[in-house]
C-alpha cells in the first residue's frame, strides 16, 4: 500500500496550508489543498500569468471568447473578478454559434446565464449569418479537411472580426495547460516550427487583436474543479465532432505520461517558452509578408485566406 503524503484527519487528508480537509492532491507540486486554498492557488497563478505575459494597460477593452464550456466559463468569471471593478476596463463576451445540432444551443444557453448573472455585455454571432452556412451544412458537403479545421479557422475569423468591431484591444481565449501542452506536442510531431512560433508570437501582429490566454498554466482538471467549487453554470457535454480530431490521441498520450511523470505538461510549456524567442529569429511570424485576402480583405500569407479557401472560393 502507498504511504500518504498528507496528514489524515478524521474525514480525509488535511490541506498542506491549513487544518481543513483537502479536495485535491496536486501531484506535480506535492500539495494537498482545501477548497479555499485551491481557489487561491488557481487565482494567484492566473494573475501571475496576466502580469508576466500580458501587460494590461488603462482604458483597454477585453473581449472574452465564451463558448459556455468549462474553460471559457471560468475564464470569464475570473477576468470579471480581476477587472470587473475597474471603471477604465471594458469587458465584452463574444459567443460564436457555429450551428452544431444538439450541442451549441445548450452551451449558448449556459453562456447567457453566466453573462446575465455577472452583468457583462454579450454578443452572439453565427456562422449562418456570417458565412451563409452552418458548420453542419459545411461538413455535409464534400470536404477535404476534418470538421475541426473548418470550425477552428472560421470561428477564429469571426471572433477576431467581432472583437475588432467592439473596439477590443485584447481577445481572451480559455486555453488551459492541457490545450497548450497538446498543441506544442502536436506541432512538434508534425514538425511545424512556424506554427509553433505563432502559438506564442513575441510581437503584436498587425491587423489582429492581441490574443491572451490567462488559463494557460492551469491543468484542465483544475479548471473543471474550480468551476465545480464555484458552482458556475456550464455545460459538460462534448462536441459531436470531437472524435474526428487527432488531438484526442495526443491528449491521451500526454495524460498517460503526466500520471506516470507528474509535471510533464508544465515542463512542455516552460521549455517551449524558452524556445520561442530563439526559434522566432529563424522563423519570424509572417507579419512582413502579409497580404489582403482578395475575397474578404483579411490579412493572410497568400492571396486567399484560409477561411475563404475552406468556404470554397478559388
Amino acid at each position: 500500500m502507498k504511504s500518504l503524503s498528507g496528514r489524515m484527519t478524521s474525514m480525509g487528508i488535511q490541506c498542506t496550508k491549513c487544518d481543513n480537509e483537502s479536495i485535491i492532491y496536486q501531484k506535480y507540486s506535492g500539495m494537498h489543498l482545501c477548497k479555499k486554498h485551491f481557489v487561491e492557488d488557481v487565482e494567484r497563478k492566473i494573475k501571475l500569468t496576466i502580469r508576466k505575459h500580458y501587460n494590461i494597460n488603462r482604458n483597454e477593452t477585453i473581449a472574452i471568447a465564451l463558448s459556455g464550456g468549462k474553460d471559457s466559463t471560468v475564464l470569464l468569471y475570473i477576468i470579471n473578478k480581476i477587472f470587473g471593478d475597474r471603471p477604465d476596463i471594458n469587458l465584452v463576451a463574444i459567443t460564436i454559434d457555429e450551428g452544431i445540432f444538439d450541442y451549441r444551443l445548450d452551451t449558448i444557453q449556459k453562456s447567457k446565464e453566466l453573462t446575465d448573472n455577472l452583468g457583462i455585455k454579450h454578443v452572439i454571432r453565427s456562422f449562418a449569418d456570417e458565412y451563409g452556412m452552418t458548420l453542419d451544412e459545411l461538413t455535409q458537403k464534400q470536404r477535404s479537411y476534418g470538421a475541426c479545421s473548418y470550425c477552428g479557422v472560421l470561428r477564429k475569423k469571426l471572433l477576431n472580426k467581432t472583437a475588432k468591431e467592439k473596439g477590443a484591444t485584447r481577445l481572451a481565449i480559455g486555453h488551459n495547460l492541457d490545450d497548450e501542452a497538446q498543441t506544442i506536442l502536436l506541432n512538434h510531431l508534425k514538425g511545424d516550427v512556424s506554427r509553433l512560433v505563432r502559438l506564442d508570437p513575441p510581437k503584436k501582429i498587425e491587423g489582429l487583436t492581441l490574443r491572451i490566454k490567462p488559463l494557460r498554466s492551469i491543468p484542465e482538471k483544475e479548471v473543471a474543479l474550480y468551476a465545480i467549487v464555484n458552482e458556475l453554470p456550464m455545460d459538460f457535454s462534448e462536441c459531436p465532432y470531437a472524435h474526428e480530431a487527432i488531438r484526442g490521441e495526443v491528449r491521451d498520450m500526454l495524460n498517460e505520461f503526466e500520471s506516470k511523470h507528474p509535471g510533464t505538461k508544465h515542463s512542455l510549456l516552460s521549455g517551449f517558452q524558452k524556445l520561442v524567442p530563439i526559434l522566432a529569429k529563424e522563423y519570424p511570424p509572417e507579419e512582413n509578408k502579409l497580404n489582403e485576402c482578395r475575397v474578404c480583405g483579411d490579412l493572410c500569407t497568400g492571396s486567399l485566406c484560409q477561411a475563404c479557401k475552406l468556404l470554397g472560393y478559388e
Binding site: 492532491y25 468549462k70 452551451t107 490545450d179 459538460f236 462534448e238
Partner: peptide, 21 residues
C-alpha cells in the same frame, strides 16, 4: 476528494471532464 486518499464505502461519482470549446 484527493486521489491519494483511501476509498471508503459510499457513493462515488467519476466526472469525466471533456474539452468544450
Amino acid at each position: 476528494t484527493p486521489l491519494d486518499g483511501v476509498v471508503e464505502s459510499g457513493k462515488i461519482q467519476v466526472l469525466k471532464i471533456t474539452s468544450g470549446g
